[in-house]
């Protein structure tokens, strides 16, 4: 059984500072890490591997420095990893990203299951998983919160859809996207960390593909959306009235009134 885990290197969103005048993030203000949801995807793959003799391959697209996330995935238990990196891959929107990932999965071949995080913390679109499934011609289940039954032919999972939680079954080959609720990712092993530190990460550029990929469909060329402009949002004006310490009585009276005026609001 072969499982691909899609991972992405992202800025540490909890720490990153933002340059509002230039409309860009200050990349020096924080480090990079594996997109947190992808760790849950990797953990799910490793749990399946514990049941069956599965091969787990981490797959990422990014600049050469993103090989760090491949190494980390291997340190955490992935068998192997591939970084898709090429100047021609840059500027990709979700469509071009998904197309390239699907092409690479085709090239790897004989894949039973693709697992992705529900979204990335820097893009926040949750689109790449389902788009990749479509380009692969595979079914998908999004927002998986629980793996119920793990077999060599199919998975049954729990995922929230519409107003409830559904039990769903996906036959291989297929793709799932997973949430943080699914599991607690295991930590990297020090021994493996040391092993991969000096190891060479396998990298595929555009020249490594043959029929699996049309160069017109990757990077900026293959993107259907363009960022035209960046705006900094104007803050919403709020009344901003505050009460402290000894003004509590006054505060309670006024706030209680506001709460009860709600039926006359928003008209």
């Amino acid at each position: 059984m072969k499982i691909i885990v899609l991972i992405k290197q992202v800025p540490e969103m909890e720490r990153v500072k933002f340059d509002t005048t230039r409309g860009v993030i200050n990349r020096k203000s924080a480090g990079v890490e594996i997109n947190p949801f992808d760790l849950n995807a990797l953990e799910a793959a490793l749990q399946i591997k514990e049941e069956f003799a599965a091969e787990v391959i981490a797959l990422s697209m990014g600049p050469t420095r993103a090989e760090g996330v491949i190494k980390e995935a291997i340190a955490r238990g992935a068998d192997d990893g591939i970084l898709l990196t090429d100047r021609k891959f840059s500027g990709a929107d979700t469509r071009a990203t998904a197309y390239l990932l699907a092409s690479a999965i085709d090239k790897i071949g004989n894949v039973d299951l693709v697992i992705a995080g529900e979204m990335t913390v820097d893009g926040d679109t949750a689109q790449v998983g389902p788009q990749t499934a479509e380009y692969l011609g595979l079914a998908h289940i999004a927002y998986v919160t629980k793996l119920e039954e793990i077999t060599e032919d199919y998975l049954t999972v729990v995922a929230p859809t519409w107003d409830g939680n559904y039990s769903k079954k996906i036959n291989y080959p297929g793709l799932i996207t997973v949430t943080k609720d699914l599991n607690t990712p295991r930590l990297p092993l020090l021994k493996r960390k040391l092993e991969v530190r000096e190891a060479e990460v396998e990298k595929w550029g555009i020249a490594d593909f043959e029929t699996e990929l049309d160069p017109q469909d990757v990077g900026l060329k293959g993107s259907c959306t363009r960022v035209r402009k960046i705006e900094v949002p104007s803050p919403v004006e709020r009344e901003g009235k505050m009460w402290t310490g000894d003004q509590l009585r006054e505060a309670i009276t006024e706030v209680a009134q506001i709460c009860q005026e709600k039926d006359r609001m928003g008209e």
Binding site: D93, T94, R95, A98, D124, T125, A126, Q127, V128, G129, P130, Q131, A133, E134, Y135, H140, A142, Y143, T161, S223, C224, T225
Partner: peptide, 18 residues
């Protein structure tokens, strides 16, 4: 959010989220 990306990919067109 799960359906629209599939439709966009099938149509080979762009999709902007949220």
């Amino acid at each position: 959010r799960s359906l629209a990306p599939r439709v966009a990919a099938a149509l080979d067109t762009g999709l902007t989220a949220d």
